[in-house]
Nucleic acid binder design. Structure first.
Length: 478
RNA sequence: GGCCCUAUCGUCUAGUGGCCUAGGACGGAGGCCUCUCACGCCUCAAACAUGGGUUCGAAUCCCGUUAGGGUCACCA
């Protein structure tokens, strides 16, 4: 059995969204699992909606997620290596028009397709009529046997669908789906200007590129029998199909912009780790017993089609956020630090690594690190939260804080454990619980009642700043 | 509307005829730990859409109903 060849074939008409990313992921996983080839093909035949910026967004999104392609558009990565290219270049459909023409001509030659000069306007009238009479519309076959010659102005190419029989699809996730040929109609496969339509372009390229398995969204199931007929007409073995269920919003409607972030790159900008997003996406519709956390490396050996579910899944941002936190906990500080710096300009931020270590179990996104650093470490003077101040920086606590300042001033450089011990003694002497001492101190030095462990945090802030903040707080109480 | 797909806790799912008084995870509630927060740990609430079959036995197989979704282009 030849090595599998699979493809992800987006059209550059928008950003790479969550659904597309999952389709790409499952294809990539299958290729990596089986030692097959993962091909990226750009289906840019919708010239009105295709844009260069969409293409860039798709390429960037793929690379951010770490889904590298073995064949496809050539891209030079940051370290100078080139990914993509390949024996079937170009991987852009608009650059492959000659190929579609050749196959269309062969189909016409063999009687499997024909040229047609019916105009869209004429057909639309019939379509309207049918609709008014509540009938289904099918192309009446006006040009079917007219033998219209190549080069006839305005002639499109239609595929001749068989009138009888049925096509059976054995889908890897949906099971057996039977389609009666009577449901099909002679559809246009090539426009008058030589640009192919989706069903034909995809099939021709799959044939040319030797695709063995097609995994795509299940909104394509109805296209599949028609495409199967075309593979057969082209004398190519029909690939195996796997139709992945849709991803829905909380309202069970297909995921779209109004459900919030659906662009993969938006998640990058919002401080998500690519591994976490991928982890979430793979678990949405696939399972491996009770396991929840998967790396791409795990998946290379664990992914299978058997456990891909057949039901549409609701996108759950909360679970993604939880996974992101889990991934952050598992990512080395140095890596997190570099990512945070790539997201936000924090200046020299000498204490960033130490701060990330402190915050690692507290951050849900990378932006949490940046925001907290900007609030807790960077400024000379902190912003005071009114409620926290009202409760903790009282005239009553002022004398205690003044003493605490003195203690801090003398013992600061002894290190965190010593400081901690000193304050425990201090609290005990005063007959106070540790919290009664540390909460006012926390508010005085950080501005709020919530922070990472205080002495470890203040060690990063530094003695001078800590005391300055404390002095400012003391003054505030006056 | 025609054709097609789907149906287990709010959500993602385990389950492939007996292991199911249905398991895990997110989220929720309560508790423990604790200088606050977070982490961690413990406990709780929460589901087989519905009606018929088949079978000694059904969440699992079949049919109907209902509900969701997909698709009916010279878009992809």
């Amino acid at each position: 059995m030849p090595a599998p060849r699979v493809r992800f074939a987006p059209s550059p008409t928008g950003y790479l969204h969550i659904g597309g990313a999952r389709t790409a992921l499952f294809n990539w996983l299958f290729a990596r699992r089986t030692g097959g080839t993962f091909i990226l093909r750009i289906e840019d035949t919708d010239r009105v909606r295709s844009t260069e910026s969409s293409l860039q967004a798709i390429l960037d999104g793929m690379r951010w997620m770490g889904l590298d392609w073995d064949e496809g558009p050539a891209v030079t990565t940051a370290d100078g290596t080139v990914i993509g290219g390949g024996p079937h270049a170009p991987y852009f459909q608009m650059q492959r028009l000659g190929t579609y023409e050749r196959h269309a001509d062969a189909l016409i030659e063999g009687g499997r397709a024909y040229r047609c000069v019916c105009t869209k306007a004429e057909l639309d009238v019939l379509r309207e009529q049918a609709k008014a009479e509540k009938r289904g519309f099918k192309y009446p076959g006006t040009c079917r046997d007219r033998g219209i010659a190549k080069g006839t102005p305005g002639a499109v190419v239609r595929f001749r669908m068989p009138a009888e029989g049925a096509t059976v699809l054995h889908d890897l996730v949906k099971g057996e789906i039977v389609t009666q040929h009577s449901e099909l109609q002679d559809e246009v496969i090539v426009r008058a200007d030589g640009v192919p339509l989706y069903n034909f372009g995809a099939v021709v390229d799959d044939v040319e590129m030797g695709i063995t398995l097609v995994a795509r969204g299940d909104d394509h199931v109805v296209n599949t029998p028609r495409q199967m007929l075309m593979y057969q007409a082209l004398n190519y073995p029909v690939p195996v199909f796997a139709h992945l269920p849709m991803i829905l919003g909380a309202d069970k409607q297909r995921l779209s912009k109004r459900h919030g972030a659906v662009s993969v790159l938006q998640y990058r900008d919002d401080g998500y780790l690519p591994g976490a997003l991928l982890n979430y996406l793979v678990r949405l519709g696939w399972s491996h017993g009770d396991e929840e956390i998967f790396t791409l490396e795990d998946l290379k050996s664990k992914f299978d089609w058997e456990h891909v579910g057949a039901t549409a899944g609701v996108f759950n941002p909360e679970k993604l956020l939880w996974l992101n936190q889990e991934w952050i906990k598992r990512t080395p500080v140095a890596e997190l630090s570099a990512l945070v710096r790539s997201l936000r300009d924090l200046g020299p931020a000498e204490q960033l690594d130490g701060f990330i270590l402190l915050m690692k179990e507290r951050a849900k996104t990378l932006l949490d690190f940046a925001d907290a650093y900007t609030r807790l470490i960077a400024p000379l003077q902190v912003e005071y939260d009114a409620k926290s101040v009202a409760k903790n920086l009282t005239a009553e606590s002022k004398p205690m804080l003044a003493e605490a300042r003195a203690l801090l001033a003398t013992r600061f450089d002894d290190g965190t454990p010593a400081l901690d011990a000193a304050f425990r003694d201090f609290a005990a002497q005063k007959g106070l619980g540790l919290g009664k001492v540390l909460q006012p101190l926390r508010v005085a030095t950080t501005g709020s009642t919530v922070s990472p462990p205080l002495f470890e945090l203040l060690a990063l802030v530094g003695k001078e700043r800590t005391l300055a903040r404390l002095d400012a707080a003391l003054e505030k109480i006056a």
